[in-house]
Structure formats: C-alpha cells, structure tokens
Design a protein around this nucleic acid. Structure first.
Length: 732
DNA sequence: ACCGTCGCCATTTTT
DNA sequence: TGGCGACGGT
C-alpha cells in the first residue's frame, strides 16, 4: 500500500532504511513523495516517530512534508521532528540553555540588526565605515561562522596569511561576538555554530541527541554549509542511519556558504553508503527537459545523471527579444493574456523569474498597465517595514531588556525628547559599567543627561517595566495591543498628515491579526516562541499559490516550485550570468545551475526573454543575449542581419577563457543615443582594422565629425569604445 | 532636538 | 533613478 505508485528507484530509496543513503533527486522526480513515504515506511515498520529527524531549508518545505506525512500515518506522523536547520538548532539551544550557559531568552538577530552591531563595533574601534562596509563585514562574519571559525581562528589565519584586512575583520568579529553575548542575541550563523560547539563541549548531551535521533534525513543537501554538515555528521555518528537528498545541479547558494562538496563527497564520507538516482521526471515536457539538459551539460563538476520523462509533448519553448525592459514587460503581459484566453489557463499558472529584484519594477508596471493581478514573492517584506520593526523592537525589548539594538531603535519612537547626545551619554555610562542601556537608566542622574532627557528616559523605563510585568499574565496579542496604544505609537500615526501613515496603521493592525493567528495555531504561544518563529520565517514560507495572480520572484526563490507557464527574463550577458561571473568558472557554473533550476520549473510552456537595451541606475546600456540562450540551442533565433544582432554573434568562446586584457564589461555604454547627421565612412557592420586590437566590426556609433565615437567588437571578443578621429582605423 | 537637504551608493541571490 | 545616511541650520 505504502509502496504503490512508486517507481523502482523511488521504491529502492524508501526501502533502504538502515545505514547511509544518498538520493540524487533531479528536478521534478518526486523527491518529496519519496521522503514522505520513507518516513511513513519507517513508522509503519515500528520505528518510534520520536526517533526521526527530518531537516529542510525552508519552513514551507518542512510544513508541506509534515502535512503529507500526517496524511499517510495519521496518528503518529505528528511526532516526527521536521524542521529547518535553524529552527532545529533554536530548539536545541533553548532546551539546553542552562547546561550550555547561554541566555535562555536569547533573541535572533536578522541582518539589519547584525549590521547595527557591526556599526557599533566600527565606532568603538575607530574604523571607517566606508572602508569596512557593515554589510560586507556581516557577510565575512557569517561566512566564518558557516565554517565554524571563531574570532580566534579568523585571526590566526589572517596572521598566517599576513592578511591585514582580515586581521581587522577578526578584531571586529571578536567585539561583535562580545556584544551579541551581552545583548543576549544570536545571529543566524550562531544558531548553527553554537549548537555544534556546545554539543562538542557537552558529550553527555550530544549522546542524548544521538540516541534520540536514530534516523536522520537531510533535504536539499547540496545547500548545506560546513557547520550544518558537521552537525548532521555528529548526530548520525552512532546509528549512521543518515539519508541525504539533493541535486548537485540545483546548488545555487554557495554565496551563502553552501558547500557543494558535501553532496559530491558523501560517498567518500560513507564508503558503504547506498546511492539512488531519481531520474524520471513527472513535471515537464521532453522539450523542456532536453533544453535544460543542453544547458546544464556544460558544467564540469557534476554527478553523472540525466532526467527524462514519459510525459507527452505539448506547449512551446521559445525565446523572444524586446527593445528594453518596458517592452519586455509589455510583451509578457500580452503573452499572458493571449495564453490565458486561448488555452484557458489561470493567472496562477504563470510565473516570471528574474535574476535581480530590481527587475521586478518594470514587470510590475507592465502587468498593472494591462490589468493583470500579480504577487511578488520576496520584495517589500512585511517584517522589514519600519513600523513593524518598531513594534517588534518593543516586543523584543520586553522579552529581553539586554537587547541594546532594539532599545536604541525605539528609545525615541514615538518622540520622547531624547536625542543623540543623550543616547551617547547613556551608552558611554552603560559600557563603562558593563550593563545594558535599559539597566543604565536606573543609575544615571542629571550629571549624565539633561533634565528633560532624564524624565523621558525614566518614563520609558516605567513603560517597559509595566509591559514586562504583563508578560506572565497576558497573551502576546494582548501585550502587542497595549504596546501600540500605551506608547502612543498608533495615536501618532492617526494624527499624522503623512500620506503613508494610514497604510502604516493598517500594517500594524495586520501584525496584530498575524499574532492572533500565531497564538491560535502554535503550540508554544509565548512571546519567546513568537519572536523566534518570526525571526526564522523566510519569504517563500508565507507564499501560497492560491489566488488567481501571476507570480513574480527571483530565480533563487523558485527552487522547489513548479508552474505550467514560466518566463525567465533578462537573459543578457552581465545580468544573467550576472556581473563578472562569466569570467570565473566556479561562479559561471553556479549561474548555469540557476538557469537550470529556472527552466525545470516549467511544466508546459517555457518562455525566455532578453532585451537589447536596459536601463540600470538611470543609465541605458546595450546588451548581448545570454550565453545560456545559445547553450539552449537558440543560435539561429538570435542572429539576423540587423546591427544589434551582430552582438548576438558575440564570440563567447574567446571571451570566456579570460585573456589578460579582455574587457570585463559586456554592456556597452551609449552616452549619446541620438543619431547625428553622418558623413563618415564608418557605418554599423563595417569591418575595420585597428593597429593594436586587430580586426573588428563596428556595432555602435554616436556623435559626428570630430566627435564621432565608435564601438567596435574585435575578433577576440573584446569591446572597445573609440573616438574615430584618434583611433587610426582602416576600413577593410 | 528636530528637520531638511545634499550626496553617495547601489543591484546578485537570503536561511 | 531612488533610497538612505550624514551633516548642518534653526
């Protein structure tokens, strides 16, 4: 019964319950089905659900898995531990807080909060924010944590390498860690790293969890970083019933620390492991798969496998060119309307994927103009709005008064007459006494701050104290309602004549109902439970494809999803593959995997698009179509006789093997798009010879007379912008 | 202490 | 082009 409807490989994966197992699950090959059936099979064989751990990367995936397992094994499925890496670690750290010696009320800092702490560090260390950009430093610290490196390790390595910059990073990192500890906060990286380190320190506790989680399953294994890898190895060490599922071709998070070698080397880690490859695809048409294959096969470092399908052929796979991003959006809108009408598709059957969030704006405009409803997944994040963050900061401070970041955010919101000078003074005092800002209010007098500031600070302290006292008697919803009224936050919005105030107030009401919702459905409906849950939600988690709207999202967010009709837009060199990634084999391969992920989301129709011209930062640039389109086999469609399409014959091969002086920028600037009367011998398409660069074709010209500028594409793939007067060109 | 203006930077992707 | 942060004027 459990094994019915499974193909032979799927069945093999489900039945192999003892010992290490790696499942290479290609796109659309029924991975979730295998995982859920495997867990159900374990339970049906008599394994205690309590002994099973399944780890995923998003709450959405965890939730779906949970739901489906409960459907198959109704009364026991709920006891299986299914969670993301981060929430799993949060659970361990909370449960063992006292043994581990960490603050049981720890908060989880997001990137914005991390950056705030880094800024504090820079100020204290007297470092320049321009030279040590906070977001960049945060990134360095996060990557160090992914590698389980403490400040000490980073410093040692920096000294060994003689890397001065990295030595400074190590210094910042050390102070940053001290601050997090004082504030009672952990960042994303800490959740994993601290779990690993503390378990390594506490053999008895590690033994307990090893015994508990006899069966471990890790989904999206290609996305695990070193810390996550170590954690799973540690837990699985005794029973070795570790099953990892993934697809190296869909590894797209290396920039976030994911190490593709974890999946590539599993068979080395466990020489006696069983390997199963799921290659039959149930999602897409043969056309789509063969095109996706012709792209991904260009990658070298991949496990040999190829997905295939018995599905019938239908739909279309095509590429189209637009003039610019607005034209692109308009065409997409038109195609969606046509397609919807002629084939009776719903709007929810359409998705548009792009490489960068910035591309969504033009697409939105185009859809809106055509009256097509859409949802954007990922941008305009609810919990990143200022008003929501303000209220959340109140909740965080109430939960954990040591949280100086939240304190500083709201100390003067709404206005209490406390300015920067007073806060600086307070901070100085607090630092000297090694206490929190909140605590420090108690000890200061008018020697430290002005009288009016002191009054404001004391009022704030009483306000928060009262909220803290409510914690044990009121629900989270009741607390948040008191916060928005008693702080005067809502009143200020209501009285404001700012046009955005109304929507801010509405957002806050939405927050209240979200909290109410949380309270109703969550088993741990405490303030602490709420805060940690919110810290760990991702963009994709809250998205459901239910309403009849077109979905817009980045290619990264598209992983794991499927749509009847898919548009992949902005397929231009420099945009996708992005930036200079084309000049780095490792990066280019990751871009290619991203393309592969995008293509394999489509069930019936796959449309790819590139725009000849695109405006970025208010500057218009000419584009060359993405090499991925050529790899997909669109060579003919991309070349015609018009000047613009000379670009389509751009010599990727020579450009690819990074020569010494190859110009990196594949965009061509056009400073003067307007054509001036032209009496020069040079015209677009003319072949010319340059004394230094050799032969090339003129692909763009601007200006006239002495000002005549030419863009020449030389045979080595290099672009040059030349002033005709000085360039010494000969026409061939 | 608060508000406005100016200038700089950015767009890769995010649990 | 737009959003955010720093700085200076009141």
């Amino acid at each position: 019964m459990l094994l019915k409807n499974l193909n032979p490989s799927q069945k093999e994966a489900v039945l192999h319950t003892e010992g290490p197992l790696i499942i290479f699950a290609g796109a659309g090959t029924g991975k979730t089905r295998v995982i859920t059936h495997r867990v159900a099979y374990l339970v049906s064989k008599g394994v205690n659900p309590y002994n099973i751990l399944a780890v995923t990367f998003t709450n959405k995936a965890a939730g779906e898995m949970k739901k489906r397992i409960e459907e198959i094994v109704p009364d026991k499925g709920g006891d299986v531990r299914i969670s993301t890496f981060h929430s799993f670690c949060t659970y361990i750290l909370s449960a063992e807080a006292s043994a581990f010696g960490i603050n049981p009320d720890f908060l989880i800092y997001d990137m914005a909060e991390q950056a705030k702490v880094v800024k504090e560090c820079l100020t204290e260390l007297g470092l320049d924010e321009k030279k040590y950009k906070p977001s960049w430093v945060v990134n360095r610290i996060s990557r160090a944590k992914d590698e389980l490196n403490l400040p000490l390790d980073v410093e040692a390595k920096a000294l060994a390498d003689g890397d001065f910059y990295q030595q400074i990073i190590a210094k910042i990192y050390r102070l940053y860690q001290e601050k997090l500890e004082r504030y009672g906060a952990l960042d994303f990286g800490d959740l994993i790293m601290q779990t690993v380190l503390k378990l390594q320190e506490h053999a008895d506790i590690l033994a307990k969890y090893r015994e508990k989680f006899k069966y471990i399953l890790v989904d999206e294994y290609q996305d695990t970083n070193h810390a996550q890898y170590t954690l799973t190895q540690m837990l699985a060490e005794k029973h070795k019933n570790i099953c990892v599922v993934g697809d190296d071709d869909q590894s797209i998070y290396s920039w976030r620390g994911a190490d593709i070698n974890n999946i590539l080397e599993f068979e080395k880690d466990y020489p006696d492991c069983k390997t199963v490859k799921l290659e039959e695809n149930y999602r897409s048409t043969p056309k789509i798969l063969s095109m996706a294959w012709s792209v991904i096969k260009n990658n070298n470092d991949r496990v040999d496998k190829r997905i295939w399908t018995q599905n019938g052929e239908k739909g279309e796979v095509s590429v189209f060119r637009s003039l610019n991003e607005n034209d692109e959006a308009a065409r997409i809108a038109g195609m969606i309307l046509d397609n919807k009408e002629n084939f009776n598709h719903n709007l929810s059957d359409f998705a548009v994927f792009y490489r960068t969030n910035a591309q969504s704006r033009a697409l939105e405009d185009g859809l809106r103009r055509n009256g097509i409803p859409y949802t954007i997944v990922g941008s305009l994040k609810f919990y990143e709005r200022a008003e929501i963050k303000d209220i959340m900061a109140y909740l965080k401070l109430i939960h954990n008064p040591n949280d100086n970041v939240s304190f500083k955010r709201i100390i003067n919101i709404p206005k209490r007459g406390i300015g920067k000078t007073s806060i600086d003074k307070l901070e100085e005092f607090a630092n000297s006494k090694k206490i929190s800002l909140f605590e420090a209010i108690k000890f200061i007098d008018t020697n430290t701050v002005t009288k009016s500031s002191l009054t404001g600070l004391n009022n704030f302290r009483i306000l928060i104290k009262n909220f803290i006292n409510l914690k044990s008697v009121k629900t989270v919803r009741e607390i948040v309602e008191q916060v928005i009224t008693e702080t005067g936050y809502l009143k200020e919005l209501e009285l404001s004549d700012n046009p955005e105030a109304k929507s801010k107030a509405e957002n806050i009401q939405e927050l209240v109902s979200a909290i109410e919702d949380f309270q109703r459905r969550s088993p741990d409906n405490s303030l602490s439970g709420y805060l940690s849950q919110i810290a760990l939600v991702s963009d994709i988690d809250s998205w459901e494809n239910t309403s009849d709207k077109v979905t817009l999202m980045t290619l990264h967010l598209a992983k794991g999803l499927e749509f009847k009709n898919v548009f992949i837009v902005g397929l231009e060199e420099g945009l996708f593959p992005i930036g200079e990634s084309a000049y780095d084999q490792v990066e280019l391969q990751e871009e290619r995997r991203l393309m592969y992920v995008g293509m394999t989301r489509a069930k019936e129709n796959l449309y790819m698009s590139w725009a000849a011209e695109r405006t970025v930062f208010g500057k218009t640039k000419w584009n060359v179509p993405s090499r991925f389109l050529l790899e997909a086999g669109f060579k003919e469609q991309l070349s015609d006789t018009s000047a613009r399409n000379i670009a389509a014959n751009f010599n990727y091969a020579s450009n690819f093997s990074r020569g010494n002086e190859i110009q990196k920028n594949t965009f061509i600037d056009i400073d003067e798009p307007k054509r001036i009367k032209d009496d020069s011998p040079y015209s677009i398409g003319t072949t010319v010879s340059h004394p230094a660069f050799g032969n090339g074709k003129i692909i763009e010209k601007s200006g006239a007379g002495d000002d005549l500028k030419l863009v020449v594409l030389f045979s080595n793939g290099q672009w040059k912008k030349l002033i005709a007067k000085f360039a010494n060109l000969t026409i061939i």
